[in-house]
Amino acid sequence: MLSDWNPGQGRPPRIFLAGDSAAVTREASKAPMTGWGQVLHCFLAPTQVEIVNCARAGASARTFSERGRLDWILQHIRPGDYLFTSFGINDAKPEEWLRTQEYGDFAYHLRKFVDGARERNAHPVLISPPERDTHDAHGNLPRSITECVMAMRDLAAVSSVPYVNLYDQSHGWWEGLGPDGVRPFFVHLEPGEHLNYPEGFHDQGHMTPEGALACARYVAHALVEQRIVPPHWAVDLDRTDLPPDWVSWLDDETHAELTRSRTRGPN
């Protein structure tokens, strides 16, 4: 599935990204937390495609839709644009207001993203979320959201939607690295190590720039390999010396305004 955009349209196509904290663009006060959507521009040329990251921390497929965020995307998406959808982490949590049933309302809400994009002649793409650093005391890495990943994969198959399996890829990486090797990819900070967390902070669920870049690079690779996007959109896929200033965080006021404005319902 390659974009039907052409230069005569006057603007590059856009990728709208709907997802949760694994994909979100973080505000400066949360650095070094980084979502993979925050750094996807490092591997997709901005002259070829614009990334509109609408992912929201704490969102499930249901709450993202219920709070008007999907409506906002569908109001702005145009023919030839893309809608990348990546949920599952919060859908698998026990809280009733977040949780969805994998082959019930989870699949039902994912279908809204797929159908909404297609009705507007845009391209839906389903992307499973990355695994977290959930190593147990024995160094094993259990699969934390297997059912949601399976439900997304199955929906992609029956709906003929491109599917990027970031979950299995990242699980294999983190498992191979082991508990110590994976630490730089997640927020593990000692006291005094970062101004935002003077007392230290250990978060096995959210990634650092290193983790986010690894996931974003894989997504970009998969998009090209599966011919979801034209190959000339991809840049620096094999570059290992990415400049530190390529990763940046939004100031808190801008982040709050984007969060508020990209909805057609209550925040």
Rank of each mutant, 00 (worst) to 15 (best):
M207E: 03
M150F: 07
I73P: 07
V24Q: 14
F106R: 02
L44W: 10
E131H: 15
F201D: 05
H188G: 01
G192N: 05
W72H: 14
P184G: 04
V49R: 01
C215I: 13
S160P: 00
E27I: 07
H41S: 15
P179F: 06
T146I: 01
D236W: 13
D71I: 02
L110T: 11
H41R: 13
R217G: 06
D238G: 06
E190I: 01
R239I: 00
G211D: 13
C148L: 10
D241N: 14
R99V: 04
E175V: 00
L40I: 07
D4K: 09
S170F: 07
A212T: 10
P130C: 11
I127T: 07
R14I: 04
G37M: 10
W233S: 05
G58C: 04
P13Y: 06
P79M: 10
D81W: 05
P198K: 09
Y108R: 15
A137H: 11
C42H: 11
V229R: 09
L213F: 02
Y167H: 15
V161Y: 00
A216H: 13
V235T: 15
W246D: 12
A234V: 12
R239H: 04
A222N: 01
D241Y: 04
R260H: 14
N140Q: 15
D245I: 01
I15G: 04
H194K: 07
P12M: 12
Q169R: 14
G265D: 08
G205L: 08
H206T: 08
I127N: 06
A23M: 06
F185P: 00
Q204G: 15
R120G: 09
Y218Q: 13
H123V: 14
P124K: 05
M1Y: 08
I51T: 04
L155W: 01
Y103V: 02
F186N: 02
W249K: 12
K93W: 11
N121E: 15
T259E: 14
F113A: 08
G265F: 00
R132M: 13
A137P: 04
L155M: 09
P243V: 12
S65N: 08
L223Q: 05
C54I: 05
T100E: 00
D71M: 03
H188R: 15
F84I: 14
R239Q: 09
L44T: 09
M207Q: 15
E96G: 05
V161I: 12
L74W: 09
G19L: 07
I77D: 01
D241V: 03
R99F: 11
P129A: 03
P198Q: 11
W249C: 11
N90F: 13
